[in-house]
Nucleic acid binder design. Structure first.
Lengths: 177, 177
DNA sequence: TTAAACATGTAACATGTTACATGATTAG
DNA sequence: CTAATCATGTAACATGTTACATGTTTAA
């Protein structure tokens, strides 16, 4: 149920339409909580039903600007301070690692290198976002930078871990023969 | 569509029933790919329809032992070597970080400390699993250990990052006044 | 004899993805 | 005038969770 909290959080910086929200999810939240257009419109309707948001204004092309209500603020507050985040329960990358014994060691090594490469690319992308934030000063982006730092460290971790794993596989292979 | 690949991977070490598979998912795969009983029975039925697995034997209490077929092995091989794993698209923990500006700095710090604590607990649990694997020798557990090492490093990362973030928040707060 | 473990299956519901359908407004 | 952007909505389908329903076998 975190999509709604993402929406509520976005609405704290001002009213927005479903369309606006989609852009914001794609831009700033893409790496943290993805959402599709379809999901957003559906969730906004449900949240309006439950009075967590309300239609504050209408615009051209049937545009509906939603604003967060007090109930919405309360719900967001509660979620922020009293609900522990669920840890991620699934990693497609690690699931494959579990079954790497099913392919020859050289292919396992290729898999690990590929993961390191993907992580390097991700690191570069995140670093670019960091660069683009260079001018923008604090307040608005402060915690965005904190989250960004997590991403930077996580992608470095994958690269280091994959390199370590590669040496493990090679040692084991040599010891085998 | 990775549940089915998890099942296929499990079945490479021999035939198993839905019940067996559930235990194995709970024990060894819990941190990597979770699955419920309901999901497993449903997926096994679908996979049998598609000839990726077959009922190899029946046992007491209506027990059905499924075995992987050649088609299943081919599918698994393809997934392992030719399909890039999807990166995780959602982190409830980081989503909250994005909105930490909505709560007072001392509460934001409390949030970060809580995440560090949770990560420390997770690290301890994983270390215990590592200990329990101490006796068990290679082959079977080799790549499990590699995956475990990822978990250990990831939980350390969260602790270090949270500590760093805490200093950032404190510096910013002091500079503010 | 009775509790725990074994064993399967399904219904209801929540969440998430892709594709389709429709139309208004703006900028070049 | 016409392409891009703005804007909403829904249908179909896939995936995932919780709860219910049912019955057998084994071990204490």
């Amino acid at each position: 149920m975190s999509l709604r909290h993402g929406v509520l959080g976005m609405l704290t910086s001002g009213p927005a339409s479903g369309y606006d929200l989609l852009k914001r999810f794609e831009q700033s939240l893409a790496n943290v909580w993805s959402a599709t257009q379809s999901q957003l419109y559906g969730e906004l309707a449900k949240m309006a039903d439950e009075s967590l948001v309300e239609v504050a204004a209408q615009g051209p092309r049937g545009r509906k600007e939603y604003a967060i209500t007090q109930r919405g603020r309360d719900e967001l507050q509660h979620w922020m301070t009293e609900v522990d985040p669920d840890p991620p329960r699934r990693s497609a990358m690690l699931l494959r690692v579990f079954f790497l014994n099913l392919i020859p060691p050289d292919q396992a090594v290729a898999y690990l290198r590929r993961q390191a490469d993907l992580a390097a690319h991700q690191h570069a992308e995140l670093a670019a976002i960091g660069e683009s934030l260079r001018d923008e000063s604090d307040e608005e982006t402060f915690y965005g930078r904190i989250a960004l730092e997590w991403g930077l460290r996580a992608s470095t971790l994958v690269q280091e871990w994959a390199a370590w794993a590669e040496t493990q596989v090679k040692n084991a292979t040599r010891a085998d023969t």
